[in-house]
Simulated assay, not measured.
Amino acid sequence: MASMARLKTDLMRTATNLRGWRTRRKLVVIESDDWGAIRMPSRHAYENLLKARIRVDRSPYDRLDCLENRQDLEALFNVLDSHCDSQGSPAIFTFNTVMGNPDFAAIKRSGFEKFYHQPFRESYKAYHGDDLWPLWQQAMVKGLIKPQFHAREHLNSTQWMEDLRAEQPETRIAFEHNFYGLKTRTGALHQNKYLTAYWPASAHQFKAILAIMNDGLRQFEMVFGFRSETFVACNYTWPSELEEPLAKNGIRMIQTLRGHPEPQLEGSNGLRSRRHFTGQRNKLGQSYSVRNVQFESYVNKNKDWSGQVLEEIKQAFVLRKPAVICTHRINYVGGMDVAHRDRNLKLLDKLLGDILKRWPDVEFISSDELAITMECE
């Protein structure tokens, strides 16, 4: 059964790579989501949630993912800086950034009547007692990371606030531990979690989500000094009606998978699947890039990840496609498990070395560079 599933995955990836934009250049784009988001606040919070019968042990993200700290960033940046491509450029991560988190204390003081936002730079101080902004700046100058927009919060805050006001029991318990990532029964018919920031359950919620997104993009430009040119939706879930406002905000390319869940604003508010390929364009002129390589080593620590990734890159290059690698932050943070972070950084280090050894003419580029390249070549 496992071999059949693998064959099906290989065939689907091949079908995706056969379509769309092509290049003779060996381009590697590494896209990494969730930087800046809290997820699990601490090991202490995790244990207390379990005691409260919130089954956070069932999700690897709840067990392992957390707000990055100084050691996490320094260790990752050291690995990236030690591998340079044929142009002399270091390996670069597209840092798909969450601009902040809920300010739990302020929300509680309001009696759950108003949502308050805590910028991610303030979250570092609140949760780690540290200012990590200089590290981000240094990494950007050295070409190790290129921030792009993910969300204002990795959270459907409108639905979350509605459920907090309705005193939904599990949501309230999780709130007391500064946690919003739980799977639970929400007030939305089809949603069992709050992480899908761009999934509205009503016209009212869509209007609110649009305003939040616009504010997040405004914050992004203020913080980084440039507009984000690409975007990836939380959990790859967004309605097509969001694409025009994204375009108006300067988003020229949407990062996604070959199939993305699209919420329906009319009728049942359920999902349908939309198919994509790299270089595909919508009616607004925006392009899509599809992640055709998976490096999510947190899933299975015993797997030969370098071997699998090299084969997926090989297929992309044979079919003259860029290799767009998906690798989430969860792989590189150690606040919940230091050994987990260190193991995955070793795998990343090996993988980057193997890529350069096998394809000496490879080029590491960021997602916004890919967008520009697809428009110009």
Score class of each variant (00 low, 15 high):
Glu31Tyr: 10
Glu243Ser: 07
Val290Leu: 00
Lys125Phe: 02
Gly267Asp: 13
Glu296Met: 08
Asn235His: 03
Ser59Tyr: 09
Gln168Asp: 04
Cys234Asp: 07
Ser42Lys: 04
Pro60Glu: 09
Val293Gly: 02
Lys283Asn: 05
Glu176Ser: 15
Arg281Asn: 07
His340Thr: 11
Phe149Thr: 01
Met336Gly: 13
Leu144Cys: 03
Gln71Ile: 06
Asp57Phe: 14
Ile107Asn: 04
Gln159Tyr: 07
Met1Gln: 12
Arg341Met: 06
Val223Phe: 09
Ala52Tyr: 00
Gly279Ile: 06
Ala2Asp: 08
Ser366Pro: 00
Asn214Val: 03
Arg19Glu: 12
Ala139Lys: 00
Leu164Asp: 12
Leu195Thr: 15
Phe93Ser: 03
Glu68Trp: 09
Val29Asp: 05
Tyr194Ser: 03
Arg185Gly: 10
Val232Ala: 05
Leu155Lys: 12
Glu229Leu: 07
Leu132Lys: 12
Val338Ala: 11
His117Cys: 01
Leu64Ser: 01
Ala188Gln: 13
Tyr298Pro: 00
Thr9Asn: 11
Gly181Ala: 14
Asp81Trp: 04
Tyr61Phe: 14
Ser367Glu: 14
Ala233Trp: 03
His260Asn: 13
Ala211Pro: 00
His177Trp: 11
Ala203Phe: 06
Arg13Phe: 01
Gln148Thr: 15
Gly111Val: 08
Leu73Asp: 01
Tyr288Trp: 14
Ser3Val: 01
His150Leu: 07
Pro245Ala: 11
Met140His: 10
Cys326His: 15
Pro41Trp: 14
Arg53Phe: 04
Lys26Leu: 11
Glu170Pro: 01
His44Gln: 11
Glu377Trp: 12
Trp35Glu: 10
Phe364Ala: 06
Asp85Tyr: 12
His83Thr: 09
Arg227Val: 02
Asn292Val: 02
Gln264His: 11
Lys142Val: 02
Leu80Tyr: 05
Gly307Trp: 11
Arg343Met: 12
Asp130Asn: 13
Ile251Thr: 05
Arg6Thr: 10
Met222Gly: 00
Ile212Glu: 14
Ala339Met: 05
Pro41Val: 02
Asn282Ile: 12
Pro60His: 08
Ser89Val: 06
Ala139Gly: 05
Arg19Gly: 08
Met99Tyr: 05
Arg172Ala: 02
Lys142Pro: 07
Phe104Asp: 09
Gln264Ser: 14
Lys51Leu: 06
Leu210Asn: 13
Gly36His: 07
Ile251Asn: 00
Asp85Met: 09
Ile212Gln: 11
Ala247Val: 09
Thr237Trp: 12
Phe93Pro: 12
Asn192Val: 15
Arg19Asp: 10
Leu132Tyr: 01
Tyr332Asn: 09
Ala139Val: 03
Leu144Thr: 10
Ile107Phe: 08
Lys283Tyr: 02
Phe115Ile: 09
His44Phe: 06
Thr230Leu: 01
Tyr288Gly: 01
Asp163Gly: 03
Gly279Pro: 08
Arg58Ser: 13
Gly335Ser: 10
Ala106Gly: 07
Pro261Val: 13
Leu155His: 15
Leu64Met: 08
Arg281Ile: 07
Thr14Arg: 13
Ile212Val: 15
Arg272Lys: 09
Glu377Met: 06
Arg152His: 07
Asn302Ile: 00
Pro263Met: 02
Phe224Val: 06
Val362Ile: 08
His340Ile: 08
Gln148Trp: 05
Arg63Thr: 07
Leu242Lys: 04
Trp160Ser: 10
Val223Leu: 14
Ala52Ser: 08
Pro60Thr: 04
Asp57Asn: 15
His83Trp: 05
Gly100Tyr: 15
Ala126Trp: 03
Arg22Leu: 05
Lys301Val: 07
Gly36Lys: 02
